[in-house]
Amino acid sequence: MPSPQVQPVLAPAAGPTGAPAIDVRGLECGYENKVVLQNLTFTVGQAELFFVIGGSGCGKSTLLRHLIGLNRPTAGEVRFFGQVFGDQGEKQRRELLKTFGVLFQSGALWSSLTLRENVALPLELHTALSKREREELATLKLSQVGLQGFEDYYPSEISGGMKKRAGLARALALDPAIVFFDEPSAGLDPITSRKLDELILSVRDTFGTTCVVVSHELASIMGIGDRVILLSREAKGIVAEGDPRLLARDSEHPLVREFFSSGGIRHAAPATPST
């Protein structure tokens, strides 16, 4: 649950009080004939900075794909603000999708559009704003992530860190209640990575956005995480849950000890070969 001091005074995008932002019950994730994760149960509170951590190949990204609805769970259910995603017809699904923002691993900017157009496209698809309003708002979102002056650049003309920030601006375009981050620090140097962490934190503090971050970067986890779940390949599920700082200090679980003492880079279970 979010600690009281991080709850913004006025939460623009906060959901109805009471229901947790994400409520996962008995979720089973997998691809054809292969179960990657099973019997997952956890909740993410509103305005919480929630980390999904674990070594490579433990199913972090798989879980993310299931949460945002790109893959269908084989069993169990995911509730967003008390609603089940996907079983209420296409219209309902689209309504719910508007409350999501996703920052993909490489930014996933549309290469044929400028940064401003990239950010303005979700607004064009889901709002009744005029073109001028969309562009003004896109300019604002880009300046919020520190990209003022780069509005007319194409994604191929900017650096990797800037692409991530532009991707974040696009993910925030519709003022989503929940933003998902897939390995935000992948491929970034430590300094850029810390700056992105600060940005994520400021987004949460300003807008009361619930943030779900998939990561194995220990510095981010310890720096900004409110709560984490640690996934493991062997257990096919959650092995530990809680405040990362407390886990690192107190947990007796061998996998947790290993993860937090390894710098988070090595696999949680180096005994088995990993992909």
Partner: peptide, 24 residues
């Protein structure tokens, strides 16, 4: 206005000023 809203509004104004359109 709530302080947060005022701050965001001023950010909006400065964002527009610092935007640099490019002639391609």
């Amino acid at each position: 206005l709530p302080a947060q809203l005022r701050q965001l509004a001023s950010q909006f104004a400065s964002a527009e000023k610092s935007s640099k359109p490019q002639d391609r």
